[in-house]
Amino acid sequence: MVGMIRHALVQFKPHKSQLPRNLERLSAIIRQLGDEGVDVLTLPETALTGYFLQAGVREQALTASQLFTALQEAVRGAGRRDPLDICVGFYERDGGSFFNSALYAELGTQNAGVRHVHRKMFLPTYGVFDEERYVSRGWRLDAFDTRFGRVGMLICEDAWHASTAAVLALKGADILYIPTASPVRDLTGVEPANAQRWEDTAKGIAAEHGVYVLTTCLSGFEGGKGFSGMSHMMDPYGVVVAKGELFSEQIIITDVHLESIQAARYESPLLADLRANLPELVRAFQEVGEVR
């Protein structure tokens, strides 16, 4: 396990359905980050195509290996020689099925390759959202190993259900990556209600399980719906380490210090308590499932 991991959260405003153009911009961003010592770059949900595609999902979706190749080209195009890991949300094609997915890839090393693909499980299909009409649900929740340690990914609404982050933390994830696309609703407070809710949610997950939580949100408008941006990183105490601006594009560079996790969990051993009570909880979940 490596101690300090430098992250760049890229709060991105893609050009709708223009994958090559968005990859060029990604390449320019990687070039801009040349000597910043960034280890992991995170991008929002559906970062390279835009989020609201309706049936255009079929035309814009990529296989995981197509996306990996595109990321390799973006890194090569940037002239980068140092290794770089990328976590990015994308519409995934797999045979005849489509998913809203997140891919974590290691690039520029001997072991370069796709480390994991998470397929979004909770597909919002209410209000401005209509995901389940166009993509299928994912059905697995796994932590995975990177060159820095064990991590997990959740996509947007996945993280609004307390049990998903709990499962990933129990599976050993020390860092949770959450690509999001959160359209602004209710401008009644100093921050939009959806952005406040995201901050509360990320803080809650981080403090409960003693994990780093990195939430990277789209910005910009799609057909009048504006994504909030305001990406953030919570430390394992649930404290905001860094927070991006509302509405605009921005790169947030911040460091994860994995050694702080054990101190946070020593002070607040809720994850260990959860593990101890797991049999009872599993039984209770099973009972609820059977009633359904």
Binding site: K16, L187, P192
Partner: peptide, 25 residues
């Protein structure tokens, strides 16, 4: 449900909307 808005944030949002739709798109 409240009708009151944070007027500074609302203004920023609507200005960003106009620029994105008219200029960028």
């Amino acid at each position: 449900k409240s009708l009151s808005l944070d007027l500074a944030v609302t203004t920023d949002f609507l200005v960003a909307f106009l620029r994105d739709e008219v200029e960028r798109r």
